[in-house]
C-alpha cells in the first residue's frame, strides 16, 4: 500500500535513505484524511469486537427471565445511555467507512472518491443524529429535568 511517511516523503525523493532508517518498525506516518479514516476504522473495529464479546456473553441471561430482566433494567441507567450512543457512533462510522472500502475494492478507484468520502460522512452524521436522538433526549431529560427537551420525532 502506498503510504507517504516522513522518512519516505514522496516519489520524487531519492531512493537512497528510503531503507536506511528501518531500525524501528514503528514508522512515523503522515496523518492525512484517508490515514485518519483508516486508523479510526481499526480503533472502532477493535472496540466493536470487545463489545461483541460482552454482548454475546451478556445474552446468556436469556436462559433465565429474572436475570434477563435485571440485566435490561441495568442497561437503562444513565451510564449505559452514554455507552449506547458511543456504540451507535462507532457502528455508524465503521459501517459507512467499511461500505466505502467495499465500493472502492469492488468497483475500483474512482476520481470521485473524495465526493464519495464526504457524502458517506454526511450520511454517517445523519445516522448518528437521527438514530442517537432518543439517547440524547433521554440523557437531556435526566440531566436537565423532565420536560426540558424538545420532543422532536418522538
Amino acid at each position: 500500500m502506498a503510504v507517504d511517511t516522513q522518512e519516505r516523503p514522496a516519489p520524487t525523493a531519492s531512493k537512497e535513505g528510503a531503507t536506511a532508517e528501518q531500525d524501528s518498525r514503528f514508522q512515523r506516518y503522515r496523518i492525512r484524511t484517508g490515514m485518519f479514516a483508516w486508523m479510526m476504522h481499526r480503533l472502532t473495529g477493535v472496540g466493536l469486537v470487545v463489545y461483541l464479546i460482552i454482548h454475546i456473553w451478556g445474552l446468556t441471561a436469556l436462559t433465565d427471565p429474572e436475570t434477563f430482566n435485571a440485566l435490561i433494567a441495568k442497561y437503562h441507567s444513565p451510564i449505559f445511555k452514554v455507552g449506547e450512543f458511543a456504540l451507535l457512533v462507532a457502528v455508524a462510522y465503521h459501517a459507512m467507512n467499511g461500505l466505502r472500502i467495499v465500493l472502492i475494492d469492488f468497483l475500483g478507484w474512482s476520481p470521485n472518491q473524495k465526493k464519495l468520502f464526504w457524502t458517506l460522512g454526511a450520511v454517517t452524521a445523519v445516522i448518528i443524529l437521527v438514530g442517537g436522538w432518543p439517547s440524547i433526549y433521554s440523557l437531556g431529560e435526566w440531566i436537565l429535568g423532565p420536560g426540558s427537551m424538545p420532543t422532536l420525532f418522538l
Partner: peptide, 25 residues
C-alpha cells in the same frame, strides 16, 4: 437496531427509559 430500539411492539420506549438502578423500563 430497528427491532431492539425503535419498533414500538418490540422495544421499550427508548426516550423514556433512563431509570434509576434496578427500575424496570
Amino acid at each position: 437496531f430497528w427491532v431492539q430500539h425503535y419498533d414500538h411492539q418490540a422495544a421499550s420506549v427508548t426516550h423514556e427509559v433512563v431509570t434509576e438502578q434496578g427500575a424496570m423500563p
